[in-house]
């Protein structure tokens, strides 16, 4: 297979030595079928063993190898070198604090994810011997798309609203809240609404739609947020007419 050499301009940051991030350039001979992650692995294996980045599955399932590739939030395992120009700039995911090199601090995302109760809130707890909660294929179809999120946080990197740092709960967490709200076995919608329907929740979204464009799993978080806006608006007026209907 033919080799083509690329210039990889990788952002480096060592909190013990660097006062601010800097760029380091590496020449990497790439095979035709390589993805950006292969090229970064080449640097780590052959050129600089101190390079830090996250990756695991190499097949767009684990969601850990997200990076800014030429300014675009992308999974490095899903971005082919053959589609790239000769010079590639690789940076850590935007909108997150940098921990080291391409590794970002994800605490804020993790807290926000937990805040929307992304798990099944069942009406009554069933004992294991009583069997599972049944669901028809039609009921599953309603939310299946939103179960495909791999928590790669590309959507947070793409979101101009999250970038403002004003506390926006963000695309992936809100899409996951929508996933459980749509689940026929779930009754947690009103409990989730305290976060989801707050000013920092869906209402902070101005429907730019960049989240859905960069999503590698086609979850369409922007669509989920718009659907939640409709449901929350109906809830708002129902609550006005019959206060305390949820209590």
């Amino acid at each position: 297979m033919s080799l083509r050499t690329f210039e990889l301009e990788i952002m480096r940051y060592d909190p013990d030595k660097d006062s601010e991030p800097r760029f380091e350039t590496f020449s990497v001979p790439c095979e035709e079928d390589w993805v950006v992650l292969d090229a970064v692995n080449y640097v780590k294996d052959n050129l600089d063993r101190t390079l830090s980045y996250r990756w695991s599955c190499h097949m767009a399932v684990c969601g850990s190898c997200g990076m800014m590739i030429n300014g675009e939030p992308s999974l490095s395992c899903k971005t082919f070198m053959r589609h790239m120009p000769d010079k590639i700039r690789i940076e850590p995911l935007a909108n997150f604090p940098i921990e080291r090199d391409l590794v970002v601090v994800m605490d804020d995302f993790m807290d926000k994810l937990a805040s929307v109760k992304p798990y099944l809130v069942a009406k009554e707890k069933k004992a294991v011997e009583d069997g599972s909660y049944l669901q028809s294929p039609a009921q599953l179809k309603k939310f299946k798309q939103y179960t495909l999120c791999i928590n790669c946080t590309l959507c947070y990197s793409a979101c101009p609203q999250y970038a403002l740092g004003e506390g926006f709960v963000g695309p992936a967490a809100l899409a996951l809240a929508h996933r459980y709200n749509l689940d026929s076995r779930d009754v947690g919608r009103s409990a989730r609404a305290d976060v989801v329907a707050s000013n920092e929740g869906i209402w902070e979204c101005s429907f730019v739609g960049a989240c859905s464009e960069v999503c590698p799993e086609h979850v369409d978080p922007a669509g989920a947020i718009q659907q939640t806006k409709i449901a929350s608006t109906l809830d708002y007026f129902k609550d006005l007419i019959t206060p305390g209907r949820d209590k």
Partner: peptide, 15 residues
């Protein structure tokens, strides 16, 4: 977090 009052203007926006 308190629930937002934005549904008032957003419902008019959507309609």
């Amino acid at each position: 977090m308190a629930r937002s009052n934005k549904p008032i203007v957003w419902s008019l926006f959507a309609a």
